[in-house]
């Protein structure tokens, strides 16, 4: 089995992906500033580069054909980063960004705090309760294998989320069923909601845990687009027999100095003043990078 359709977005260069990630972060801040309720901005910013690398490079998906059997499946298991996924998908043509900003969290909106597949077709799974995504991925990957389809099933999880026992049960099931068409991505931002990793929950030696369960482990800087793209390019064939985990080292709140590695910014909303500060911080970091 080989991948039948090349990804249309696969042509994007690293530079253009970086520009898209900047745009995604800017849009996230705008929403966080206009919406009255809390936005999970910390965990959104930590996965912004990953979601751009997926929706604008790695995933074989087509906004014009969201039910294509050949499409890659993507499960946002850390469902609280929904709005980051909505915007990344909007930028790829799935949804209208204006609709997201205008209706987010409001009555009858399809764009809620956690993704709902029924209300928002294009989203692969309804998630939000942590620890559910990887078992679903095992089911989808088994089905693909059974039908002889060559797509992959990607699952994005928080590192804190992997404290759930269901994750490790699925890790064993994936390996036992030799599902090389599965790719788990860990947003390794080393923060949970109320504590830092290692403070109360010991994760290390983290990559070794996955290795011990027999997975192929790839470690990347989750904010380095070149590394993300390379990891995607070098994924084993979906027909192979070992599932892959990409452990993406990230920073919660990435791009906004006062949010980075700050437990207070797991979720929040930005007032007008903070929004300006956040924008300024994001821009100065971006100029630093592109200079």
């Amino acid at each position: 089995m080989s991948r039948s359709t090349p990804t249309t977005a696969g042509a994007n260069s690293v530079e253009s992906l970086e520009a898209l990630a900047f745009e995604l972060r800017s849009k996230l801040l705008e929403l966080c500033g206009t919406y009255e309720g809390a936005v999970h901005i910390g965990g959104d910013l930590s996965v912004a580069d990953i979601l751009v690398a997926l929706y604008h490079y790695g995933l074989n998906v087509d906004p014009a054909d969201i039910a294509s059997p050949e499409r890659d499946r993507f499960i946002l298991s850390k469902g609280h980063a929904a709005v980051c996924m909505y915007i990344a998908m909007a930028m790829r043509g799935f949804f209208s960004y204006d609709d997201i900003v205008d209706t987010y969290g409001q009555l009858d909106s399809a764009y809620g705090m956690h993704p709902c597949k029924v209300q928002l077709p294009g989203v692969e799974c309804s998630t939000g309760s942590l620890g559910h995504g990887l078992p679903l991925a095992v089911g989808m990957a088994l089905s693909a294998r059974h039908r002889g389809e060559a797509h992959r099933v990607f699952t994005l999880m928080g590192d804190g989320e992997t404290g759930e026992g269901s994750v490790w049960e699925a890790v064993m099931a994936a390996r036992s069923n030799e599902l090389g068409n599965m790719v788990a991505i860990i947003d390794r931002n080393r923060q949970l909601m109320t504590s830092f990793a290692e403070e109360r929950v010991v994760f290390e030696p983290y990559p070794d845990k996955w290795r011990a369960f027999g997975w192929n482990v790839v470690e990347v800087d989750g904010h380095d687009m070149t590394e993300l793209v390379t990891a995607i390019d070098e994924l084993p064939e979906p027909s192979s027999r070992i599932p892959t985990v990409i452990i993406a080292e990230t920073v919660k709140g990435k791009g906004v100095d006062f949010m980075e590695r700050n437990l207070a910014w797991h979720a929040g909303s930005l007032g007008a003043e903070d929004l300006e500060k956040a924008r300024a911080s994001l821009s100065s970091g971006h100029q630093g990078e592109t200079a």
């Binding site: 804190g160 949970l192 929950v201």
Partner: peptide, 9 residues
């Protein structure tokens, strides 16, 4: 005791 994301435990 904060067990992290692990309601069952």
């Amino acid at each position: 005791v904060d067990v992290g994301l692990a309601e069952q435990v």
